[in-house]
């Protein structure tokens, strides 16, 4: 069944410009990792699922034949296409749909990317099955997302922080859970890098809670609760999340993972 995530559309429509300008989205480590793992070819057709600020779509476009920027929010797609025009890129197209319900024929893409968006999906398994369906045999999947800790207490705190930050957050998964989900969707040659244990983050030095909340228009009371939870976390949790007090702000680590596989 296909779902339209109305909350996600409402949340991200007005934020398209902020995500386009976000440093962690524009220059984060996982963007380079996606390109390195995929090794794009001039003949490739690429689908960038939930393109958001369009950083992945724009990064791949100069190296491939075609990129389709997909998102459930029309504002995000519109902005990505505008940025492509400004950059002189003529091979970028756009469509609007949920990730769980992709409007393409089977086996028409060589690469499916998705960066830091799966935690908003209603159904990760359905989104991965759709990615598998539209990939040609041997096609490459390269997705990054927030990584869940295996420790239940730390994972619960990560989830609480994310939901406070953005009510459209649905969930995050451990590397083992990603592997299971990819296997369940029919992928092979699965590799998962990063995660909490490897402390993979987009930028060195972690994330400013204030900037993180500002980008997503987190309500002030939710932002205050985020700061309180980080400041008052037990020492082992603070160390695990790399929490650092900085005056009125707190820096901490949003851990990422990179999942690659073949159809």
């Amino acid at each position: 069944m296909c779902h339209m995530t109305r909350d996600t559309v409402r949340q991200f429509g007005p934020l398209a410009r902020d995500y386009a300008l976000s440093e962690s989205h524009a220059r984060g480590r996982t963007l380079a990792m996606l390109a390195l793992r995929v090794q794009p070819r001039a003949t490739d057709a690429v689908l960038d699922v939930a393109t958001g600020g369009g950083h992945t779509a724009l990064a791949f476009a100069p190296a491939v034949r075609l990129v389709v920027a997909h998102d459930v929010s029309r504002s995000m797609v519109q902005q990505t296409l505008g940025r492509a025009r400004d950059a002189g890129l003529s091979n970028l197209r756009g469509v609007v749909s949920p990730a769980e319900c992709i409007p393409f024929a089977a086996e028409c893409f060589d690469v499916v990317t998705c960066r830091t968006a799966a935690h908003h999906f209603d159904d990760l398994g359905a989104a991965l099955r759709e990615a598998r369906r539209v990939l040609r045999s041997g096609g490459r999947l390269a997705w990054t997302d927030l990584a869940a800790a295996t420790d239940p207490e730390l994972r619960a705190l990560q989830h609480r922080l994310e939901v406070l930050h953005d009510a459209t957050h649905r969930g995050t998964w451990t590397p083992a859970e990603w592997r299971d989900a990819l296997e369940g969707a029919g992928f092979r040659e699965i590799a998962i890098e990063g995660g909490v244990d490897e402390r993979l983050t987009e930028l060195p030095g972690g994330t400013s809670a204030a900037e993180w909340c500002e980008r997503s228009r987190t309500p002030p009371e939710a932002q205050a609760e985020i700061l309180r939870l980080l400041r008052e976390a037990r020492q082992t949790t603070r160390e695990a999340l790399g929490v650092r007090d900085e005056g009125d702000d707190v820096r901490f680590c949003l851990y990422k993972l990179v999942a690659t596989a073949r159809a």
Partner: peptide, 15 residues
């Protein structure tokens, strides 16, 4: 019928 708005096809089934 899935509308195209500003050259962007909208495939939200609910719309």
């Amino acid at each position: 019928f899935y509308p195209v708005v500003d050259d962007i096809p909208n495939f939200l089934i609910e719309e």
